[in-house]
Each structure stands twice: as C-alpha cells, then as structure tokens.
Design a protein around this nucleic acid. Structure first.
Lengths: 246, 246
DNA sequence: TTAATGCATATTGCATGCAGCGTGCAAAAT
DNA sequence: ATTTTGCACGCTGCATGCAATATGCATTAA
C-alpha cells in the first residue's frame, strides 16, 4: 500500500499548547490551508511513484496517514484530479491515475506545443539578463551531463524549461504549463532509464539557446517543441518496454 | 448581489419518497455530485456576468442560494479557482476574479498558442468526415453572419474552435483548452460589442478551413493563432474603453 | 482631532455524524 | 452446476458543529 508515516496524534485543538512562541513560520512558508498542504504531499507521493497507478485512495486511510480529516483531503483530491494525477469515481474511492502510453504521447505533445509557444514569445521578450541566466543554466546542465549526474541533470533540465516559459511573460500560459508538469515529471521518473538520449538532449538544448540568443523565435519554438515531443516518445517507449503501466 | 432563486426546501432525506418511479434521469444527465452541479451553475453565473468581478462569494449565502450545504460549495469554489474564475483568499471570502486587461491579452495569447498547436495536429489527423463537419459549420457561421444573428454566431464560433481542437485527437491538449474556455467566453460576453470584427473574423475562419483542407497544418496553425490573438486584442480594447474592469 | 487598542461579530477552515450507494458473498432458484 | 436474488458492510457524499481568524466599531489615549 505504501502508506506514509502515520503522523496522527492530534485530534482536536489545532494549535499546540505552547504554539506561537517561536517565529510565526520558519522563513516564508506562504501559509496555506491543510488542503493545499495535503495536495502538495499527495502530489509528491504520486509523482515519486510511492503511490502506484491504479492504487485506491481511501479517504479515511489517507486522511489519517496525513493527520487531517476527510474534508481537506477531499478538496486536495479534487485538485489533483484536475491535474490528472488521480481519477475520481462517483461513490467509489479515487484512484491514482494510471499511466497509459497513449496519454503520455498526448501529454508531451501538448507540453511541446505550449513550450514552443512560450519560446516564440520568450525570444521577443527576454532581457539580456534572461539570456545570461539561460546560458548559466546551459553551462550547469552540460557540467552535470559531463559528470553523469542524472539527478542534477533532471533538476536543471526542469529549470531550463521552466525558465523559458517564465521568460514568455504570460501567466496564463505558465499556469497551463505548470498544471501539466507534475504528470511530466511522474512519467520521467517512471522511465528514468532514458540515459541513451542524454547527448542528443543536451545538444538540442544548446541549439535552442542559440536560436533564442539570435532572437529567432520561430526556430527556437520549433526546436523546443520537437525536443519535448521526442523526449515524450522515449519516455513512452521506455514505459511500455519496461514496467507495467497500471 | 444577483443571487439565484433560493431553491431550498430539501433539508435532509435526499431522495423524495416516491423517487425512482420516473425514468432514472431525464435523458443523459451524466449523474454527478452536488459539487459539480454547483460548479456548473456558478460557472455560468460568472461567465454570463450575473456575478460581477470582485463580488465576494460568501459560503453561507451561496450555498443557501444553491440549496446545498457549504461542503460541496467549497469544493466547487476550488474547482472554479483552478479555472481562474474565482480567487481564493485564505480565511477571507472568495471573490469573483477581476478581469484585468493584461490578463486577457495573456489569456488569448495562450489559447491562440494551444489552438495553433491543435490546428497543426488536426491537419494531419482529420478525416474527410471531420472536414465535412467543419465545412458545414463554416456554412452555418456565414449564414448567421449574413443575418446578423450575434448569439448564434458566437455559438457556432465556439463550436468551430472546439471542433478543431477535438480533431487534433489529443485529450490533454483538449483539456488544457477547455480549462481556459470559460474565461474566454466571459471576456467575450463582457465585450459583446466586437461587432466591427465580424467580417474579418468570418473570412479568417474561411482561410483556416482552406488551409486545413489542403492539409497545410503550419499555415492553418499560424492563421488560427493570429485569429485568436487578434480577437483577444479587440476584446481587451473593448473592455478597457468600455466598462470598468473590476 | 487623530491614532491606537480592545471587543463583538461575521465568516472561514476543519472535524465529524449520518444516510445512501456500490460491492461481494451467500443462499435460493433454475 | 450455473444463474439470480437478498443482504450486509464498507465507503463515499453531504450536512452540520465548533474553534480560529479577520474585520469593523466603539472606546481610550495622545
């Protein structure tokens, strides 16, 4: 079942007895309701694969595991459902969304389209500072690539894609992108073996950067879209040829 | 305040005593929970402008107006928040999302990007039946355009855009698109005066159709993206030069 | 007069209780 | 032996209660 630590032991009385003696919050935790915290935790559990596709998410069990009641948990589940990480079934328990190969292809296709659009806008709107930031990230990713540091590579990779979307200066587009990201990362972690594509991928990033520096939005967008779609193909293939989908 | 009819009068006992004597449901209402029904109703109220931007959505008042309790209403509000129609404030009442001009521009830019991507895919994947369907819609929109039937025009316009996205055969892209549509429609209805663009718009639709028929995805996508962005500009301008934003 | 402080109230956020739906198993019918 | 019917139980969906927080006003201090 892969439950989390059963951190209960706090039934009523929401604040500890000697609360508010320490600084209100430990450095910029932008106070949020329990439902959002629950959503964050559950999202991570699903993305990291601690909760397997198809696994039922019983409200009582999950809420106890998270130390909250069913109400905020249900709100969190609905949020995750809109992100495509869980599936809600009326009068039945929610389940962790399965990973269907077909859906993965569509997912990367969609993300590729959005990032391409973002790259075109970014090419117009990027400041020289932004360009410098991208160059720095490119150096970092090549460094990690050279040293074979898979985890850091993925981390910086995410940062690059996120940065390009951010430079497009379009909050709506960015939100749409971020709504799809958890599923992307989940797929990536399921198919961690995409090592064979490393060289290709780093080079593609470099080409995209060059296009952006030249202000050639069309080319940057085209390259980025292709890059994402090809990544998706690799991930999808790895998934079907490897582990079971659901 | 623009409340709806206070359809209460059904406190406990959820099923009427002589229920299940009539046909289970009146023709394809795909049974859903109260929270979804509430979300649908609220969405329509906001999109149609019955609830004005900035208006606070008190939980007790809204739940009573809809004849439900606060729990499903809260779930509905969270859903609408992810659609960008309401803004949630911790420990404060939720409010109908304001319409900022800048956000409208971004919205149409994003929708344009998504539809462009969809058009490119549709050009590859459309069947001849799909083409015929688009041609039929094009005839209908030109007919309504010729007779000056604003409402029907918008209706068919939505159908055309939706159809193109559907023909792309990508559920993820379609979902991302549909998540943005309510905001688009809200903006449209706020700026109903965009009549001046009618001729232009119908013609652009025709050009897009021609490109799709020719299987020229790149051109269709380019045209559709521009079309949507220009529509957005008109709507945004109408909004700022007309009514107050919030 | 203006600013600061404390209290009252309105409203959210969460916990919990209860009714009904859906499922699985067992008994009965074919 | 196989299918059908009945029943019991687990779980969801919703309603409601309670504590905590935020706001507005009155009161007090400067």
């Amino acid at each position: 079942m892969a439950k989390t630590k059963p951190m209960r032991g706090r039934k009523q009385s929401r604040r500890g007895p000697a609360a508010r003696l320490l600084p209100r919050r430990a450095l910029r935790v932008p106070r949020s309701g329990l439902h959002e915290q629950a959503a964050t935790k559950l999202r991570e559990l699903i993305v990291r694969g601690d909760l397997l596709p198809g696994e039922p998410l019983l409200e009582i069990g999950m809420s106890e595991a998270l130390g909250i009641s069913r109400t905020p948990l249900r709100e969190a589940l609905k949020q995750l459902a809109t992100e495509g990480l869980v599936e809600l079934r009326l009068n039945r328990s929610a389940v962790v969304a399965p990973l269907r190969r077909e859906e993965l292809t569509e997912l990367f296709e969609a993300v590729g389209g959005i990032e391409r659009c973002a790259a075109e806008l970014a090419a117009i709107r990027m400041t020289s500072q932004d360009v410098a930031r991208l160059e720095a990230l490119q150096r970092r990713i090549e460094w990690h690539h050279g040293r074979g540091e898979l985890r850091d590579y993925f981390e910086v990779n995410q940062q690059i894609h996120g940065a390009i979307v951010g430079f497009a200066q379009n909050a709506v587009l960015k939100a749409a992108h971020e709504a799809l990201l958890p599923r992307v990362e989940r797929a990536r972690l399921f198919a961690l073996s995409a090592r064979g594509r490393w060289n290709e991928s780093v080079n593609e990033h470099r080409q995209i950067l060059i296009a952006l520096e030249a202000g050639d939005g069309a080319r940057a967008g085209q390259l980025l879209g292709r890059h994402v779609r090809r990544t998706g193909e690799i991930v999808a293939d790895t998934l079907t040829n490897g582990k079971a989908a659901s």
